[in-house]
């Protein structure tokens, strides 16, 4: 019993018997209960596996971009599941292979925008005043420009490649993370345990990244999963406009754009890439919803 304090000293071994349990185990337990979120997670995992395997399974030159004009515009069949396009390339193969573009662009772009945006947001929220004002006003300027337009401008300035695309989309979403992080930091900054940390001698940096950030993570994590979805959409939109991943790479948006010309006669050329984008975005959104619920401490009790 822990009252009736016996003034003996505990040995460190005695304490270490009691293992540390992670917060993430708890989150996972909550997450598992949410069936739609699990479906989302399952699809995301499947997509990642497909993206990785297709990269090694298919030969880019022979299977993906090789043109076979005699086979053009074949309807979906046992041989060509999703049919063939105007150059006689197998749509199914191209969509499967294209998963790596969409996923890598989505994930890398989010990593860039999240790292940059969250840091700025935490700094803005923590210091307030002039610092906050400067950071937020700059963000607002960027938000004022439509994201696709901003993407177009960056792509046009730095040239068309998948790396530039990643950075372009990453930059476009920085303000979103910055504002989310700042909003999440504000209530935490006023908490008493921040004052307690100060009394314990923790400096500004430690308070920001050891105390405030871990406690304002949940909206940011949710923003990340949702952000992957919007990153994929933006990448596809840019490719659709011909500014994304350069042709003839089978990026889904680019395929959609190519198929558009034949939408009346060969609708499957647009339907299948569209479905692929939709399913991917939906899966990330479902997962994000589930994560938000699992991370919300209010639902715990």
């Amino acid at each position: 019993m822990d009252n009736n304090t016996t003034k003996r000293k505990y040995s460190v071994e005695e304490l270490k018997k009691y293992k540390k349990r992670s917060m993430w185990a708890e989150v996972w337990r909550n997450f598992k209960k949410n069936r739609t979120a699990m479906v989302g997670l399952f699809i995301v995992i499947a997509l990642v596996i497909i993206a990785v395997f297709s990269h090694f399974y298919y030969d880019y030159a022979a299977d993906i971009v090789h043109q076979e004009l005699k086979d053009r515009f074949q309807k979906p069949s046992a041989e060509h599941w999703f049919g063939t396009d105007s150059f006689g390339r197998d749509v199914f193969t191209r969509i499967v292979y294209g998963a790596q573009y969409s996923l890598s662009v989505g994930i890398v772009a989010v990593a860039i925008s999240c790292a940059l945006g969250t840091t700025l947001g935490v700094i803005a929220g923590f210091y307030g005043g002039v610092t906050e004002n400067i950071i937020l006003r700059v963000c607002e300027v960027f938000v004022g420009i439509p994201s696709v337009l901003l993407g177009i401008a960056i792509m046009a300035a730095f040239g068309q490649s998948i790396v530039v695309l990643m950075f372009a989309i990453g930059l476009v979403y920085v303000p979103m993370y910055c504002r989310t992080a700042r909003a999440a930091v504000l209530p935490v900054r006023g908490e008493e345990y921040i004052e307690a940390a100060r009394i314990a001698g923790v400096g500004d940096f430690g308070i920001m990244f050891k105390h405030i950030l871990p406690n304002s993570l949940s909206p940011i994590i949710v923003q990340i999963t949702m952000g992957v979805a919007s990153g994929i959409l933006t990448a596809s939109s840019l490719s659709f406009l011909g500014l994304g991943v350069p042709l003839p790479s089978p990026e889904w948006g680019a395929m959609l754009s190519e198929g558009r010309a034949y939408i009346r006669d060969y609708g499957y050329l647009t339907i299948f890439p569209g479905l692929a984008i939709m399913i991917t975005v939906l899966a990330f959104n479902l997962m994000g919803d589930g994560l938000r619920d699992a991370l919300d401490p209010k639902l715990k009790q």
């Binding site: 019993m1 822990d2 009252n3 009736n4 304090t5 016996t6 003034k7 003996r8 000293k9 505990y10 040995s11 460190v12 005695e14 304490l15 270490k16 018997k17 009691y18 293992k19 540390k20 349990r21 917060m23």
Partner: peptide, 21 residues
């Protein structure tokens, strides 16, 4: 770790709470 063990004993926190939240 020694010091934490000592402090926990001083204020009367049971050892099993070492890694509790």
């Amino acid at each position: 770790e020694e010091r934490v063990a000592e402090l926990m004993a001083t204020v009367g926190l049971a050892p099993r709470l070492f890694n509790s939240y």
